[in-house]
Design a protein around this nucleic acid. Structure first.
Lengths: 218, 218
DNA sequence: AATAATTTTTAGACAAGTCTAAAAATTATT
DNA sequence: AATAATTTTTAGACTTGTCTAAAAATTATT
């Protein structure tokens, strides 16, 4: 049996380590989980014992197949619940994350698969992130950050890097959401801000915003 | 902050103590939660400290208003999730309990109230038990156990006392469900078994079954 | 290559919730 | 009312996950 805490460690390692492909070091995990490095050391030893990952002292950890399976399954559940909350229960995209953090730990194969079917097998969550299917397969989308977009071209907003409440509410208040069409008017070399056009209105976004907003070519 | 374990103790005390109205003793709680009396003593002291209940040494515990509020809220969530699982996700009435035991602990006012609205404010769960509304109000139905029904009368099945998988599957396999019409043919004084008629077929149920099946007069 | 700075691990402690075994209180029996 | 049986509580220990502070290893700097 895997505990809630173990699941959260595995999930963090998965996200920090490029879908479980890279080695992740102790401090990064501690930061991500708001805990101390010593606690992380204890837990990764335990996870290594349980064969979810490889742990080399002073080097770091890398997920093994069974660890990646656990992580993908949690990601699947998290994103399906997010779709449910937005599409059926009138949550906004900045409200879903916290609740989904809890729902993702409910253990029932039937629950997640029936939920998937009920939502008609969605492929992306409300933040534009792909949802793994029953077999754990999903498409890594060819997304480009607004900060790397080309002046003069037209894009569609497909997701965010930072899904903090602050950032999502900023986007909402500026009428930027999933699917919003964005034309790149000008890039300011001085401070890396970007002038963009939404429908008819033009606005300038900071480098920080530009780096955290993902687009795809229209 | 209330922990998951505290919530489960409060829920058990609520059910054991007639909606929180009666005093409940230590061993009863230990039995219900599959734990030891000494663990119960420790926990009820803690719950008394937190003002959820009154605890008198060697006497037992009784829920206070705040404890009843906690319990009713958990019951509300549990039963709403059961409705969701049966009506939207194709669960059968014997499959819902275990999953709902976990879903009931998710803490989000918005989640439960939106779920309630999404399900169109159901008043009863799939086992016939009433669902408290947003303010904790619900109707205690005038139900009668099959064991106390009158020979010759016709009833409708409205719920169960025992919602164990075994019992619910027994009912399913004998085509007894919510809404089934049941006529009382004969009561056997010798072993308290009851002969009943369902549509056209007649069958005999044991005293054990009869005590755990709730009816209402048709 | 030696020293300094950083990262990671170890050692020991703590809180929550549980357990066993023994002691104390209550209830039942004669 | 005294003794027996039962119930409940206490005392001390264990597990999980956490922490602090110190030690050890690694990496960076001179």
């Amino acid at each position: 049996m895997i505990t809630l805490t173990e699941e959260n460690y595995i999930k963090a390692i998965y996200h920090l380590g490029n879908y479980g492909k890279d080695i992740v070091n102790t401090n990064a995990i501690a930061d991500a989980l708001n805990t101390k490095a010593s606690s992380v050391t204890d837990m990764v030893k335990k996870l290594a014992d349980k064969d979810y990952l490889n742990y080399k002292k002073y080097q770091g950890v890398k997920l093994k197949k069974s660890g990646i399976n656990v992580a993908v399954n949690i990601v699947r559940k998290h994103r399906l619940w997010e779709v449910f909350l937005v599409e059926k229960l009138n949550f906004t995209w900045d409200e879903v994350h916290e609740v989904a953090e809890h729902l993702e730990h409910i253990k029932s194969e039937k629950l997640v698969n029936e939920l998937d079917a009920f939502l008609e097998f969605p492929t992306h969550d409300p933040h534009g992130d792909p949802i793994p299917d029953k077999d754990g397969k999903f498409n890594k989308i060819e997304k480009i950050a607004l900060s790397h977009a080309t002046v003069g071209m037209v894009y569609k907003c497909i997701g965010v890097e930072d899904s903090s409440t602050n950032f999502l509410q900023y986007l909402d208040s500026n009428s930027i959401g999933l699917g919003t069409t964005i034309e790149i008017i000008h890039k300011e070399l001085f401070d890396n801000s970007v002038k963009i056009k939404l429908n008819t209105t033009e606005m300038v976004v900071s480098q920080n915003v530009a780096k955290n907003l993902y687009l795809k070519v229209l």
